[in-house]
Design a protein around this nucleic acid. Structure first.
Length: 570
RNA sequence: GCGGCGGUCGUCUAGCCUGGACUAGGACGUCGGCCUUCCAAGCCGGUGAUCCCGGGUUCAAAUCCCGGCCGCCGCACCA
């Protein structure tokens, strides 16, 4: 792929107009970090709001937003598996100091698959096969793990290690039980969070698409695998179509997505659990609302070896970009009960929940009871041991013995049958313990910011128009006096003040000619522009000019705010 | 990390090969002013460059050499 103009235009306008640029610029820049300027910050917030609308506000009865720390103690990432699995094995040349991915190097030299082997095993293979530095031929050191987690120290004491979160998920898992209680103990329940994460990527590239620090919009959706409760929600979307490639398709060499209804994907088992499919449809609606047409979105199932350590099934959601082709903007993972189970194990807390049955389940059951006064008199200090042995025996077997004989031999003691009674009791099961399963859709905000810019930027008569959905625009409206006449300026400023007071992000501009102002506003994506002309002074109307069509209409100066609310509504 | 290509005002770029007249030129933007009754019109003035950084060669380096940083593309990994 050669240089293509769309990405260049995005970064050019992005930098020139103050959307985003590389961080630490004056010190030469730092790879994988981006700063957002005033327009970029506003747009990012609008994207987040759009996400909240689709996933949280429209699902408020089953969704709760939380916020948790960026830095976590070591035990959390031991439990989550990131300390162990979020790594690449790396080996250093003792001579020239260059570093290599150990597994890749071995695979290149020997042709053997070594994925998943331990560092010690990899070191041993390097020694046995006498693998040397491919650049200088020097001897290689021991294989070490390069962990993609950013490590730090919490407080002044050494050994108190902390890690920057590489995903938001752990915050949700750790707090699940508490929030479940706050939310009146109902399943399904989603815990959502928007926040920054860090991943110490070996080599970040591609502008804002691959960052060492970025923002994720994510939720963990907890449900009871036996009673997922998706029916009501699925009703709305079961006939909607998704474009997807299954792992099976990929293994058989297919690279084109199939279009299929959600109901079909679920019936055929291509999507393993209904909630995963439900959120994939909502995710498609969300990405479309950012200005990406459906044919430029698809879902690709990851192959087992491509999946993260916690995942039972993962679909990436991809959007077509001009320079980088299909780019993952979201991951949709079915995490099963992996995380809650692991945190249960490490924290020794019971993270299961109790689900009450509609009616208690009554079970008749035979139990063994003993006459303690008989046992005590006969066996004294051995009585306890004998009682234990008896009650742990199968009641049915014991019952037969009691009916047949006068004595029963237990642990070498002869127990008279009158000391043993088999009783039938009723046991009430009013519910069951469940470790909920989890489906996780996770979006990268900066990637979406880029995608919105790329899809929005259009060229028209030698001008750049940022034709993004109005709800995402940093400014909703611009106010201009047609020419710099005191009366026009006065009225335009009054309209501007009024809009400002109602909290509408508005732009006032009276420099240069009217055409120049329209052009400037178009380039930063202002969807509507109000112009005050001489007729405005006479009859109180103004023109509204549309960014995308350049058409105009006249409305009352007092109706501008109302006009906007209508245009910006969902 | 490896390989290929690149890095000059806010942005795009001229100059680099063939070292010196470069006090680094232009366009656009931006700012101030004039003009202007609807699409970057015109005029005047201002602003703005560590020539990516460090070292070397040379009387002399944006230009040649070495190292590093950063970017793009390819390999790998990922939201």
């Amino acid at each position: 792929m050669t240089q293509s103009s769309a990405a260049d235009r995005v970064f050019e306008v992005g930098k020139r107009r103050g959307f985003f640029w590389q961080s630490y610029e004056i010190y030469g820049g730092l790879s994988g970090m981006y700063d957002l300027g005033p327009y970029g910050a506003a747009m990012k917030e609008n994207i987040i709001n759009e996400w909240k609308y689709y996933f949280i506000r429209r699902h408020q009865e089953i969704m709760a937003e939380i916020e948790t720390p960026i830095i976590g103690p070591e035990i959390v990432y031991a439990a989550s598996g990131h300390l162990e699995s979020f790594t690449d094995p790396i080996v250093t040349c003792q001579n020239c100091g260059r570093k290599f991915r150990a597994d890749q190097l071995i695979e290149e030299v020997t042709g053997d698959k070594v994925e998943g082997k331990s560092n010690d095993e990899l070191s041993r293979i390097i020694r046995e096969k006498n693998i040397r530095c491919p650049i200088c031929g020097g001897e290689l050191g021991e294989v070490k793990s390069f962990n993609l987690l950013f490590k730090t120290q919490i407080g002044p004491y050494e050994g108190s290690n902390g890690y920057v979160r590489p995903e938001l998920a752990q915050g949700m898992f750790l707090n699940f039980k508490r929030v479940y209680g706050v939310m009146r103990e109902k399943l399904p329940l989603g815990l959502a969070q928007v926040g920054r994460v860090g991943r110490n990527e070996i080599s970040p590239r591609q502008g804002m698409l691959r960052l060492r620090e970025f923002t994720i919009m994510e939720f963990e959706f907890f449900f009871d695998p036996q009673e997922p409760g998706h029916e009501k929600y699925l009703e709305r979307v079961k006939d909607k179509t998704l474009r997807l490639i299954s792992a099976e398709d990929r293994l058989s060499g297919r690279s084109e997505p199939r279009k299929m209804m959600l109901s079909e994907a679920l019936e055929t088992g291509i999507i393993k659990t209904p909630w995963l499919g439900y959120w994939m449809v909502v995710s498609q609606e969300f990405i479309r609302s950012l200005g990406v047409p459906e044919e430029n979105i698809y879902f690709e199932e990851k192959l087992p070896e491509e999946r993260a350590h916690y995942s039972r099934q993962t679909f990436d959601q991809l959007v077509k970009t001009e320079r980088w082709g299909w780019v993952e903007v979201a991951g949709h993972a079915y995490r099963g009960d992996y995380d809650l189970s692991r945190h249960s194990l490490y924290s020794k807390q019971d993270l299961s929940i109790f689900r009450q049955f509609e009616k208690p389940f009554i079970m008749k059951k035979k139990v063994v009871k003993v006459n303690r006064s008989i046992l005590g008199k006969l066996f004294r200090e051995k009585a306890g041991e004998i009682e234990g042995a008896l009650t742990s025996m199968n009641p049915e077997v014991l019952k037969d013995l009691v009916n047949e004989r006068r004595e029963i031999e237990v642990n070498g003691f002869k127990v008279p049958t009158e000391a043993v009674v088999i009783e039938e009791v009723e046991e009430r099961e009013s519910g069951r313990k469940v470790i909920p399963h989890v489906v996780e859709p996770s979006f990268g905000v900066e990637r979406l910011l880029y995608v919105v810019m790329e899809y929005g930027l259009k060229e028209k008569e030698d001008r750049l128009i940022l034709s993004i959905p109005p709800r995402l625009s940093p400014f909703k409206i611009a106010i201009f006096p047609l020419v710099n006449d005191e009366r026009l300026e006065g009225m335009a400023k009054r309209i501007f003040e009024e809009l400002k007071q109602s909290g509408i992000p508005a732009l006032y501009d009276d420099s240069g000619s009217i055409g120049r102002r329209y052009a400037r506003a178009d380039e930063v994506g202002v969807p509507f522009a109000v112009t005050v002309d001489f007729r405005s002074i006479e009859d109180g109307t103004v023109t509204v000019r549309y960014r995308d069509s350049w058409e105009q209409e006249r409305i009352g100066a007092s109706e501008v705010a109302e006009f906007l609310w209508k245009k910006l509504a969902h």
